[in-house]
Design a protein around this nucleic acid. Structure first.
Lengths: 336, 336
DNA sequence: TCATGGGCTTGCAACGTTGCAAACTTGCTC
DNA sequence: GAGCAAGTTTGCAACGTTGCAAGCCCATGA
């Protein structure tokens, strides 16, 4: 067993409370006492028991970050920033992945299995929709990440997906492409991200006076490399294949890129490809990947700030905070 | 505040202890009592307070996984497996990243800032060596991951890096390459991984009757894509550049690949490239990346098992468990 | 000499849970 | 019908910490 306040107190010949005062740098402690206690603390290697402290204080200074998949680079990169910003505000972050499983998402967010363990939650939902989230019974503060439709009554950091998708699509149009495909639409009603990006895509194509050929709008089950690869194979098999593709994330785009090159299709000469997320992989692929780059550092910072403020007692109305994004045009659309 | 056992007990007209018995599925509880308590539990939305439970029981059923960088795909992929296996044994995993910072590594492992919070730690060290680890004061069980030299008196899951590096190098030699470079050596004595891979590389080259040209052994500060890209640029600038490169991980290899292609060097015709880790990126690059594939799922499983057994009271001598690896020959060495 | 006050130290209780062991209630056997 | 075992329920204490408020001590000034 690790030593406790009692052990230190006995050995130093003072009360438990005094040791606690020293450890917490409290109030008035005589220099001599402080020195003696500190020495014993060092001798015994005393460390405050986090669990007992949490119980007593009713807070743990731990935040949960709930993401669909940790090994999806976008979330891994985001996680780094969240951890950094949380640390700056004195919080430890625990990461949990849901695999987009509604049951698991519900378990973590809705009914508070972990309610007393974390002071707050940053949650990037996949399956749970606004309706689900509205009747949460747990009162642990939550900040939503990503693209979920609003009006949930929870703080929310997101980027404007319609505009961002339009930006990507217009970039392809401006390059003179006319037969533009999209990979990543999802039939599932709850997948807001995909729906919003499809909306932005459609708007941009239509506004440019082009037509959205239904066969060029490819649905995928997931947002993984394999899905992008498969979708691109289908597109290339068409009698009249596209001359540009907007992929709803970089993994899809990297899968699509791989398939295109394998089929001897030149990128961007024959088909231009643009992704979304600006993960590091895309900067080192050949050709390097054009993409929409959400400001991940800003997203993480805003989310942590919102949450930390709530925990500091901020009771104003929940807000919806937009995050910035930019177009990163690279070789997969511009060429070398 | 969330409801406690006391709240449920009062409302159900039973003692706190009985509610606890119901919640824990204990012993003999009359069906009628159980039903009533369960109803109140549902009504109030009672959830056991994890923190209080941990304090009382002296264990949290949480494991810490300490890795250098979460956004390095190898660790992200490994983390997924660790979380899965830990869940299967009833543990929750908390992930923490150290950025390879010795202070932070020490803080997490050595002096137990978090000692009472976690029942055990799975630790992938970068900076801390065997000597450091030997005089740990904390008694929380630890399983080491990766390539650290042994004799530390801690459980340890690793792959045989010398053999693995040799396997990669021989693959290049068998393809007829004679001027073979290596990227990823590190001057820092504590970086065992790099040293062992260099050793395996040297041995294989020498055994094949070839010479290790010192200029072809490139050191890097980190194991990131940018380091691989920079090292490859240096190699290509040589009067007599290599015809094959063994990179100590896949990120280095992907960076090197990018630089090679940018310089108009054909891979593998002009330079064959092989990496290490078998991260998903490498399967979708063009050309796809040959690599050494450690069995990550096995590594995670062994680590969790070792740790869980210790927590179940296993007091046998610490063991050193080897994990499997295979050669994955792909386009970056074989061509299309 | 005694009251005053500030610096310093302390005991008690409580956070929500569970181990322990006692106590109570049945129903059954002899 | 008494005794006993099994089934059921309970009170107490403790895990290690900190908020609260009281109490101690000594120096100062009247």
């Amino acid at each position: 067993m690790s030593p406790t306040l009692r052990d230190v107190a006995e050995r130093a010949g003072v009360s438990i409370r005094t040791v606690s005062n020293v450890v917490n740098g409290f109030a008035h402690v005589a220099p001599a006492t402080r020195a003696r206690v500190e020495q014993v603390v060092a001798e015994l290697g005393y460390r405050p028991n986090t669990v007992a402290r949490s119980l007593r204080q009713g807070r743990s200074r731990m935040l949960a970050l709930v993401v669909p998949e940790l090994d999806v680079p976008y979330f891994a990169e985001l996680t780094r920033f969240v951890i950094e910003h949380a640390a700056a505000r004195g919080y430890t972050v625990v990461v949990d992945q849901t695999d987009g499983d509604p049951t698991r998402e519900r378990e973590l967010i809705m009914n508070g299995t972990t309610a007393n363990l974390f002071d707050g939650v940053i949650f990037s939902p996949i399956a749970l929709g606004g309706a689900d989230l509205r009747d949460r019974t747990v009162t642990t503060p939550v900040v939503l990440l990503g693209e979920r439709a609003s009006a949930v009554g929870l703080d929310h950091v997101m980027i404007d997906n319609v505009t961002a998708a339009g930006l990507a699509t217009r970039h392809l149009i401006e390059l003179g492409r006319t037969r533009i495909a999209a990979i990543g639409d999802q039939n599932d009603e709850t997948r807001q991200t995909a729906r919003l990006r499809t909306l932005g895509f459609r708007q941009a194509v239509t506004e440019a006076g082009l037509r959205v050929d239904p066969v060029l709008l490819r649905s995928t089950s997931f947002f993984h490399r394999a899905d992008g690869a498969a979708a691109m194979a289908e597109l290339l098999a068409l009698a009249d294949p596209p001359d540009a593709v907007f992929c709803y994330n970089d993994l899809l785009a990297l899968g699509a890129l791989r398939t295109a090159l394998q089929h001897g299709v030149r990128v961007p000469e024959d088909i231009a490809i643009i992704g979304f997320d600006d993960i590091e992989d895309g900067r080192y692929s050949t050709p390097s990947l054009s993409t929409i780059s959400p400001d991940k550092e800003q997203i993480a910072r805003l989310a942590v700030e919102l949450l930390a403020n709530r925990l500091d007692g901020d009771t104003t109305e929940p807000v919806e905070v937009p995050a910035d994004f930019t177009l990163q045009a690279r070789e997969s659309t511009l060429g070398r």
